[in-house]
């Protein structure tokens, strides 16, 4: 799960405060918050901002910095490579199972995998993917 998806998830678990509310509580600018949640490239370069957000949401700073290295476009590239080269990919979901299979299609919201051994197919929402590995 990218930093942006994770911050959006944390915001939802806290009752859905808007950017202004979070900004006033943390001191992180609204512009930075919007950039973090909405950009597909690597964002959140300011560690001080991430510190403030980690304190606000009550999560370890490492949860945010770890996800900063997994921006959305990287997953897109991995899915693209898996599809193009017909390679299996492992998708590790947050708080859930890991799915390993071949990519049938992907877009910016979801991807469908064909699981091996006749296990069928599964459509995974990309915001649920914590980590991935091209096999």
């Amino acid at each position: 799960m990218s930093l942006g998806d994770y911050v959006r998830y944390l915001r939802a678990t806290k009752g859905g405060p808007d950017f202004r509310t979070v900004s006033e509580a943390t001191g992180v600018s609204i512009r930075s918050l919007r950039e973090i949640e909405q950009r597909y490239r690597r964002v959140g370069e300011d560690d001080q901002d991430l510190h403030k957000l980690a304190d606000y949401f009550g999560v370890p700073l490492a949860e945010l910095t770890w996800r900063r290295e997994r921006w959305r476009k990287l997953l897109s590239q991995a899915l693209y490579s898996a599809l193009r080269e017909n390679r299996p990919i492992r998708l590790i979901l947050r708080d859930g199972p890991a799915f390993e299979g071949r990519v049938l299609w992907w877009d910016l919201g979801a991807t469908e995998l064909e699981l091996p051994g006749g296990q069928g197919r599964v459509v995974v929402q990309r915001h649920a993917v914590d980590d991935w590995e091209l096999l």
């Binding site: 959006r8 919201g109 069928g120 197919r121 599964v122 459509v123 995974v124 929402q125 915001h127 649920a128």
Partner: peptide, 8 residues
């Protein structure tokens, strides 16, 4: 969709 992890 934000509440959904996956579906089959």
């Amino acid at each position: 969709k934000l509440a959904i992890a996956y579906y089959r």
